[in-house]
Amino acid sequence: MEMKKPYIKSIPYEEFKDNETLEALIKELNKERTNVVVGALDDLINWGRSNSLWSLTFATSCCGIEFMSVGAARYDFARFGFEVTRNSPRQADLIMVAGTITHKMAPVLKRLYDQMAEPKYVVAVGGCAISGGPFKGSYHVVNGVDKILPVDVYIPGCPPRPEAILYGMMQLQRKVKVEKFFGDKNRHQNPRDVRREPIIVTNAPIDGCEKTDK
């Protein structure tokens, strides 16, 4: 059976990296057959959701400045529909974890994530959020935000360039596009689980930042 590939206006499908992960994801989601009407509705809803991803203004360090650059005139993520950054977690669709997460910040971040309304996504921006980055050996740094939240997309870099952030956002768009909103196939989430298994689109780099250990 031919798989339906998510179409993004900005970059052709073949030019994306890591298509295998996405295809595996599509295969898994399409295991059971879907009603035509429900499928069409899904497509419509997904089109809307993927083109209107409002992020929470959340930044702990350097990556936050690059995130602001993405919002400013030169990179302007409003073009893709990421127009509005909401300051209230209730109204945000995704949380950009831009920067190091420390032990003191971890419960705050978890609470912020819990405060967000479903459907919600997590993007780990920068080496620190992915693995602890250059601060990996520290006593007060959480080595990777995936220890406390399910991460959807990893954007490596220290800090990632604005282009990388845009690319990561598009990866997230593609992921949203293949999801099934109706029928509850997408998220078998048990509210009692502390964390659910993340579906990862971009591969996490082994070490996000320049290596500080020889």
Binding site: K104, M105, P134, F135, S138, C209
Partner: peptide, 24 residues
């Protein structure tokens, strides 16, 4: 909330390695 313990980390690194921390 963003205390990364850089000063402690520095004590276990060599001098050229320290440089990466100051930028951050």
């Amino acid at each position: 909330y963003i205390h990364r313990g850089i000063e402690k980390l520095c004590e276990s690194k060599t001098y050229p390695q320290l440089l990466a921390f100051t930028d951050r």
